[in-house]
């Protein structure tokens, strides 16, 4: 089947009796025809524990955000043991990273002191007594 024929197909075709009840007659769908109706959705947020009585959720965007005690930080952590500019979350090559900004007390990921670390879903960032869970979701959804 050539591209012109496959491009006529759309997800609306999925429910039609003539293409599903008899698999012999099912028209093959090209990858392109299927994928053009699907969007890649990437969302991530931090669940911060230890600043407020309850965990605080902060959505991450594809921009850098600095965590620290200073009020000019995008993610302020007003706790004594946190450095003024303690760590940075950044988005590079479709991945989130955390980098310690030469803080006094350091940054840990899953119990290991790091300078820099690519973040994966459910990673636990520790800054003093503050625990931050990185939550990431990548989905493909129909338009």
């Amino acid at each position: 089947m050539n591209e012109a024929e496959t491009s006529r197909l759309s997800p609306d075709d999925y429910g039609r009796g003539d293409s599903t009840t008899n698999l012999q007659n099912t028209n093959p769908l090209s990858r392109r025809a299927v994928m053009k109706h699907i969007v890649f959705h990437h969302s991530a947020y931090l669940e911060i524990n230890g600043v407020q009585p309850k965990p605080v959720g902060i959505e991450l965007h594809e921009k850098s955000a600095v965590l620290g005690r200073s009020p000019d930080c995008e993610i302020p952590l007003p706790v004594t043991e946190v450095s003024r500019h303690h760590a940075r979350i950044s988005y590079q090559n479709e991945e989130y990273h955390v980098e310690d900004l030469d803080s006094t007390n350091g940054t840990m990921v899953n119990g290991v002191s790091i300078k820099k670390c690519v973040l994966r879903n459910n990673d636990q960032i520790q800054i003093g007594e503050i625990t931050i869970i990185f939550v990431e979701e990548r989905t493909r959804q129909s338009k």
Partner: peptide
């Protein structure tokens, strides 16, 4: 091992991590 004597931090090395 973290609570042992001597204490030792063990982990499975992971791509994309920089340790100081």
């Amino acid at each position: 091992f973290l609570s042992g004597d001597p204490q030792i931090n063990i982990f499975w090395s992971r791509e994309g991590v920089t340790l100081p």
